[in-house]
Design a protein around this nucleic acid. Structure first.
Length: 401
DNA sequence: CCTCCACCGGAAAGCCGGGTCA
DNA sequence: TGACCCGGCTTTCCGGTGGAGG
């Protein structure tokens, strides 16, 4: 009977042994006791921030390095320690951490300032007020509690791309308008990002600069070792497993986060297969799975118009030696719109949608010139061949073609 | 060497749905 | 209630442009 089977399943699930001892340790939110291979950067940050303890204003810091190089982790760790001392010694100091990429929370000028004001105990409606008004409330809040502030702006490049450097200009000038002092720590993935900034903002923001270089394979290995000790049960990792994870990640610009994820998913795969050990094959499988899951996740959460565009591309792809051009996609897209009773977007817009898919890594779209026959994007799918039908299905179901 | 195709991509402006405030 | 604000998505307008073919 079905019921009986289910019960058994859950019971055996409960009793099943896992390769994990504590899976949390592998998650990116986990903060380890010590941060490996970032001693130098930690020291620099500490040095710069230390004056805050004597109620002097620390310099602004600009931090850059690729994803998974421990920027956020290191900054949070150091400021946390700083706060511990400050509270113990009763020094007026406050650390505000804001991730500028968080959708609908801090990704525009209004929302960022509103978020900051909220952190200081003001209540700001999510929309409706003039931005100017929000600034005023924020400044007032700063003035009321006279103390040093350290403002951490994570993924600051995203903010500037979306809203321009106006916000930063205003923020760097806070100290001229208020009693309290604010130091800014900007964190960015994009190294070239400061170059596009207003010179005044640039010089003020990057009074100090700290670079986080990618980890090399050996360093990633030791990071993984540090975590696996607590994450996995004794001896479940087959010989060479951490080494392989490290090698994968190092090949991909030293991204420790990815290495940890790979290890975690490999463990999950092993569990699901009822294996007592995590093997090298599990890692290969995990890599594939991460890839596949990411694409499916991306595709299924797109808005309708995006899905139509992608569907147009997918139905053009099979059995083609040459790649696909914007014009063709647009034609198919138009007919799809008619079939599904959807309003037709302009080619300009569709062109943008295609390049968004490019940035998401679903599609590869380079601008090429066909000489006499014009200029266009050269589009090809980045989806592994095997997932084609599945993706197609997802699209068809969600837009009923 | 010049032309001219078939789009690219920046700028600006419009529309709409969310909201505040007096 | 009307004036006004924000932000996401689009459209409109339009000045480029790499390179095959003449």
């Amino acid at each position: 009977m079905v019921e009986r089977g289910l019960e058994e399943f859950f019971e055996s699930f409960l009793r099943r042994e896992s390769v994990f001892f504590d899976k949390k340790v592998l998650q990116s939110t986990y903060t380890p006791e010590t941060i490996l291979h970032r001693e130098e950067q930690t020291k620099q940050i500490a040095n710069i921030l230390a004056p805050a303890l004597k109620t002097e204003k620390p310099s602004n810091i600009f931090i850059y390095g690729k994803t998974g190089t421990g920027k956020t982790l290191t900054v949070r760790h150091t400021t946390q320690k700083l706060m511990e001392i400050a509270t113990k010694e009763n020094i007026p100091l406050r650390v505000l951490y804001i991730n500028c990429k968080l959708k609908r929370s801090a990704d525009t000028e209004y929302r960022l300032i509103a978020q900051l004001a909220r952190e200081l105990g003001k209540s700001i409606p999510p929309t409706g007020l003039p931005t100017e008004e929000v600034y005023k409330t924020f400044f007032k809040a700063l003035n009321k509690q006279k103390q040093n502030h350290v403002l951490i702006l994570d993924e600051i490049d995203q903010l500037v791309i979306k809203t321009g450097d106006n916000v930063l200009y205003n923020l760097t000038r806070i100290n001229e308008e208020t009693e309290s002092q604010v130091s800014i720590i900007g964190i960015s993935n994009d190294i070239t990002f400061v170059d596009g900034l207003d010179p005044r903002v640039k010089s003020s923001l990057s009074e100090e600069e700290i670079i986080f270089p990618p980890y090399n394979a050996l360093q990633i290995q030791s990071i993984l070792k540090q975590r696996t000790e607590f994450a996995f049960n004794n001896g479940v990792l087959e010989q060479g497993v951490t080494e392989k994870c490290a090698a994968y990640a190092a090949r991909d610009h030293g991204d420790a986060r990815r290495a940890l994820e790979l290890l975690r998913v490999a463990g999950e795969v092993a569990d699901r297969k009822n294996s007592k050990k995590v093997t090298i094959e599990h890692i290969d499988e995990a890599e594939e799975k991460i890839d596949r899951d990411r694409i499916i996740e991306v595709v299924s959460t797109q808005p309708k118009q995006y899905k139509l565009v992608l569907y147009a591309i997918i139905s053009l792809q099979p059995g083609r030696k040459n790649n696909i051009f914007t014009g063709e996609v647009y034609d198919i897209y138009k007919s799809l719109c008619k079939k599904t009773n959807t309003s037709i977007l302009t080619q300009r817009r569709v062109s943008d949608i295609i390049s968004e898919f490019d940035m998401l890594g679903v599609v590869n779209a380079k601008v090429i010139s066909k000489g006499r026959y014009g200029r266009t994007r050269d589009i090809s799918l980045e989806i592994p061949e095997g997932t084609f039908p599945k993706i197609k299905n997802i699209l068809e179901e969600s837009i009923n073609i």
